[in-house]
Design a protein around this nucleic acid. Structure first.
Length: 225
DNA sequence: GACCAGGCACATC
DNA sequence: GATGTGCATGGT
């Protein structure tokens, strides 16, 4: 079983029919999307929303304010998102690079080819592949596939990738089978998260999954496998 | 109370 | 280069 344009389309259509458009990214403007992308690392979105609300309430959702605020105060504001000391440093790293290269012009920072933007983002401490791709897709509005644990698990259980497939391999595979459609890239990742959260857990519950009719192996990647 | 959530950096082997 | 560990909260 290989991933084809048709398979990818069928998966997306099935998930979309089941869950509807997911409406990602739930952020107000490119800076908030970037901040949210860092705060959501290994963290449930509902916790991120509380941290974002704190930042806005403290009038800190701007490049200037995020630059000016002291690290401990920033950490305190983002506490609900967890890992607050680490994430406060990561936010500071991001803001520092932004200011070094483009002052407070977040749009100018994001406005360049996806490949060079990705390279720059990955060179910032605290921004890995998934966070970089989330920023490129949802803040910069450029087609790049955001791969996460759910994406890998769903594709693996459907025998569309091997267990060893790494991030870049999965990303390339999906991108090479998708039309350059920003709306599709945007919603596809969100659909993978939806199906992953609901059905494709470490202990799968395939009944009712929109992908249940497609060839799959629920035991793949579980203790029973 | 255990497990999970829209990861990443760093130490160690 | 692969693997293990720390970071930390809030919902289920």
């Amino acid at each position: 079983m290989a991933l084809t344009e048709q398979t990818v389309r069928e998966m997306y259509d099935a998930m979309l029919a089941h869950f509807g458009h997911q409406g990602w990214w739930p952020g107000d403007g490119p800076l908030e999307v970037c901040v949210g992308a860092i705060l959501t690392q290994n963290t449930n979105w509902t916790n991120v929303e509380k941290a974002l609300a704190n930042l806005k309430a403290a009038d800190c959702m701007s490049v200037a304010a995020l630059n000016a605020i002291e690290l401990p105060a920033l950490a305190e504001l983002i506490r609900p998102a967890g890992y607050f000391n680490v994430k406060a440093r990561r936010l500071k790293n991001f803001i520092a690079r932004l200011r070094e290269t483009h002052g407070d012009d977040i749009r100018g920072f994001l406005d360049r080819p996806a490949a060079t933007l990705r390279e720059e983002l990955l060179s910032i401490s605290g921004i890995g592949r998934e966070t970089a791709d989330s920023i490129i897709l949802y803040a910069a509005g450029k087609c790049t596939f955001v791969v996460d644990a759910y994406t890998a698990r769903v594709l693996f259980r459907h025998r569309l990738i091997d267990a060893e497939a790494d991030y870049e391999t999965i990303k390339e595979l999906l991108e090479s089978n998708l039309p350059e459609d920003l709306g599709l890239f945007n919603d596809f990742h969100a659909q993978f998260v939806a199906v992953g959260k609901t059905y494709c857990r470490p202990s799968p519950r395939c009944a009712g999954c929109p992908l249940e009719e497609m060839p799959h192996d629920p035991a793949a990647g579980t203790e029973e496998a």
